[in-house]
């Protein structure tokens, strides 16, 4: 960015305004809101299996997800912005996940954490009767994080990717 020289001390208001450029920026309000949304993602307190422990670790002392504004875990779906699907979704749990997703107010996002929520992971085999093979069979997923379980760093990376995606403002689930 080009350095602008400081205005002279005796400059008139008109000259000052010319130098500073327009005071009023015109943009879509949505973009401004997206900047705010991306920086304060509130995840749902919702663990399914092993990955939930790594999700907790990501929120705890060493990794501290709160640095990125996403450490405020909400126990109620009605207050949450992002659903981190941490663990295997069993078929018995599937309808519950869908119900929780429906309870979350828009705009909302979902992160599929770990192999199980991507495609069934280690529990996928012909004849598997107990699990939903992939979270995207139930709800739309924005970011996939591979691993079994992914390390907390990977989850934080996934959250940052989701931030980028939100700031880009191209996609919304309504």
């Amino acid at each position: 960015m080009k350095e602008t020289p400081p205005p002279p001390a005796n400059a008139t208001t008109e000259e000052l305004l010319t130098q500073l450029g327009p005071l009023v920026h015109l943009d879509v309000l949505e973009n401004l809101l997206n900047q705010a949304r991306a920086r304060s993602l509130w995840p749902l307190t919702f663990g399914l299996a092993c990955c939930a422990i790594e999700m907790m670790a990501a929120g705890a002392s060493r990794f501290d997800m709160d640095r990125f504004g996403s450490g405020v875990f909400r126990p109620s779906a009605r207050q949450a912005d992002v659903m981190i699907l941490a663990g295997t979704i069993s078929r018995k749990m599937g309808p519950v996940v869908k119900a929780l997703w429906d309870q979350m107010p828009s705009p909302k996002w979902a992160i599929a954490m770990g192999g199980c929520t991507i495609d069934g992971g280690p529990f996928k085999y012909p004849g598997q009767y107990a699990i939903v093979e992939g979270a995207d069979k139930i709800i739309p997923v924005d970011v996939y994080i591979p691993g079994c379980p992914p390390r907390p760093e990977a989850l934080i990376n996934g959250l940052l990717m989701l931030e980028q995606k939100i700031k880009a403002g191209k996609k919304f689930h309504v």
Binding site: L48, T88, M93, Y129, A130
Partner: peptide, 10 residues
């Protein structure tokens, strides 16, 4: 049963 993953069948 909400986390039943069929270990024994596997």
């Amino acid at each position: 049963g909400y986390s039943h993953r069929a270990h024994e069948k596997m």
